[in-house]
Amino acid sequence: MVHQKKRDDALALQDCYILNLPKIEDSRGNLTFVEGGVHLPFDIKRVYYLYDVPGGSHRGAHAHRNLHQFMVAMSGSFDVILSDGHQERTFHLNRSYFGLYICPMMWRNLDNFSSGAVCMVMASARYDEGDYIRDHGDFLQEVAR
């Protein structure tokens, strides 16, 4: 299990990374599974997915104060652009057997969705509007504290 950082610890872009998931190959079709606290550095409390994203559309454009997330391209592909307020990195997700772990206090934008792309997200907590930072300027101020 990966160590979870406390909210007071400084989080940086290198705390976000690609995780490979188990892949059981079979001539009848492959199987991949994920277990919270085993493959992910958190227990899964919520799962949601984005689909039918129109070409040229962007998603995300926010950060979370405390939420840990894991994103997987279940179908198609898309880019996840992460920023910790100091540096930025783009991750291209295009396989259902790996995904991107996103720690708290990362500004994220999702872009470049292929036709038929499905983005599944596993989250460490239930929906909480108070955990969102939706203004980039506010995010930069919180990061500077």
Rank of each mutant, 00 (worst) to 15 (best):
F98D: 09
Y101C: 03
V53G: 00
D26C: 11
S57N: 10
R95W: 06
N109E: 14
I133N: 00
A63Q: 01
L82W: 03
S96Q: 15
D43V: 15
I44T: 14
F42T: 04
D15K: 11
G85M: 05
R145M: 09
I18H: 05
D131H: 06
Q14K: 15
M74E: 07
T90S: 12
H68F: 11
V38T: 13
F78P: 06
Y51L: 15
V143T: 02
M105E: 01
I81P: 01
D138L: 05
S96D: 07
P22H: 08
I44R: 07
P54Y: 08
M120S: 08
A117E: 06
D15P: 02
G55T: 06
Q141E: 07
E25K: 12
G29W: 09
S57L: 04
R59S: 10
E25P: 01
S115T: 11
Y48I: 03
G85H: 06
F42H: 03
V34P: 07
S124I: 08
N109L: 11
Q4S: 07
H68R: 14
S75C: 10
H62I: 13
V118C: 12
G36F: 09
H3L: 15
G137Y: 05
L21F: 15
F33I: 15
L140A: 00
Q4H: 02
I133G: 01
H64T: 00
C103R: 07
A117W: 01
P22G: 12
Y49H: 10
R95E: 07
L13F: 05
S57F: 11
L82Y: 03
T90A: 01
Y51R: 15
A144K: 13
F98P: 01
M1S: 12
K23Q: 11
V72I: 15
S27W: 09
D84Q: 04
L100K: 07
G85F: 03
D131P: 02
F139H: 00
C16Y: 01
F139G: 02
L19Q: 10
S27G: 08
D52F: 09
I102Y: 00
G85L: 08
H62D: 05
N20E: 15
F113R: 04
K5E: 07
Q69P: 03
V2F: 14
G76Q: 08
S77R: 03
H136N: 11
L13Q: 07
V80H: 02
D43C: 03
M106E: 08
Y17Q: 10
L13T: 13
Q14T: 13
L13W: 10
Y101Q: 07
Q4G: 03
